[in-house]
Amino acid sequence: MNFLYLVLISLFAGLLVGKYTSYEFGDLALLMLYLLIFIIGLEIGKSRGVKREIKKLGKIALILPLATIIGSLLGGAFASFLLRFPLKWGIAVSAGFGWYSLTGPLLAAFSPIYGVIGFLANLTREIFTIIFYPLVIKRVPKELAVSMGGATTMDSTLPVLVKFGGKEITIIAFIHGFILTAIAPFLISLIAQL
C-alpha cells in the first residue's frame, strides 16, 4: 500500500478519535516526535558526506526561508483581500508560518477571533503540508517544496518531508524551520502592534 494512504488513514483516524472519544494519550505525540527526530539524527550521524551536503546548500539555505516569509505574507494578504479580512491581522496570522501553538495565543491577546483563526489557519497549514507535500514534490523540486511547512519543517513536519523527500533534504528543512521559528515570534508581535 502506498505510504501516503497510511499517512492519511492515520491522520483521519486520529481526527475521529480526537473528535468523538475522550481517550487521553498524554504526551505521546511529543514522545513520538522526539523519537522520530532521534532516528533522523541517527541517519544523519551514520551517513557520510554531511559536510559536503551543507557546503552544497550554500545560498539556498538562506534564500528559501526568505522566499517562505515573502510568499506567506503575500499569500496572507491575498487571502485577507479575498475574505475581506483586516489586512494587518491577516498578515499577522500568516506570519505564524504554521506555528499554531504560538500564533493562536499571541493573537488571542489582541482579539479572541484572531487568536482562533491564527491557531486554526496555522494548524491547517501543518496538516496540508503532511497531506500535500508528497503530491507537490511530483511537480516542484523537493527541496523548494520544503517552504510549504514554514516553521514546522524543523520539527513536526520534518519526518514527513524526510520520508517523502529523502534524507538529503533533512538539513535544508531543519535550517529553514529553525530560521522561521526564530523570526515568527518577533514578526507576529511587530505586525500586531503596528
Partner: peptide, 12 residues
C-alpha cells in the same frame, strides 16, 4: 504513522 495519529487526535 503514530505521530500523525496523535497529532490528528490533538487536532480533533
Amino acid at each position: 504513522l503514530f505521530l500523525i495519529f496523535f497529532m490528528g487526535v490533538e487536532a480533533g
